[in-house]
């Protein structure tokens, strides 16, 4: 006999759907960018770089279509995906009128952004 979970509320369903979409899209974008970088590196017979390069080097490399920088951008995209998903969670709780969890999710987002900000100082 098939077991059925207690019915999920519309809010829960909306939250789950939104977070899943963000995660899947983030991954697809990151993989697409990295694949382009890898392909370029193969075509140009360039070895992969030892480091990703800091933001300025990354931007400069991207303007020159440098394969290493494109791969670096893909890595940055995957790193940013959980931040986008946390934003989506905070926003969804806020829209659903759940102030407690909108605040908690917003706090998590702030801590994550602070950690990135601190690391780049």
């Amino acid at each position: 006999m098939q077991a059925h979970s207690p019915p999920e509320t519309a809010n829960e369903s909306q939250l789950r759907g939104r977070v899943t979409r963000v995660l899947e899209t983030g991954f697809r974008v990151a993989v697409s960018i990295m694949s382009i970088g890898l392909l370029l590196a193969l075509v140009q017979r360039e070895p992969l770089p030892e480091t990703m390069g800091q933001p300025r080097e990354l931007v400069s490399g991207l303007s020159n279509a440098d394969p290493g920088s494109i791969i670096g951008l893909g890595i940055v995209a995957i790193i940013l995906t959980p931040i986008v998903s946390t934003t989506a969670i905070a926003w969804t709780f806020y829209r659903q009128g759940d102030r407690r969890y909108a605040t908690i999710s917003g706090l998590v987002l702030l801590i994550l952004l602070a950690s990135i900000g601190l690391s780049l100082l």
């Binding site: 800091q54 790193i79 990135i116 100082l121």
Partner: peptide, 24 residues
């Protein structure tokens, strides 16, 4: 763990400790 590792990854990125030859 994904959210937690973001903070870690950012710190290691800032210190040039993320090597694409291993990461890719």
């Amino acid at each position: 763990v994904g959210m937690t590792a973001v903070a870690t990854a950012a710190v290691f990125y800032a210190h040039d400790q993320i090597d694409p030859r291993v990461v890719v």
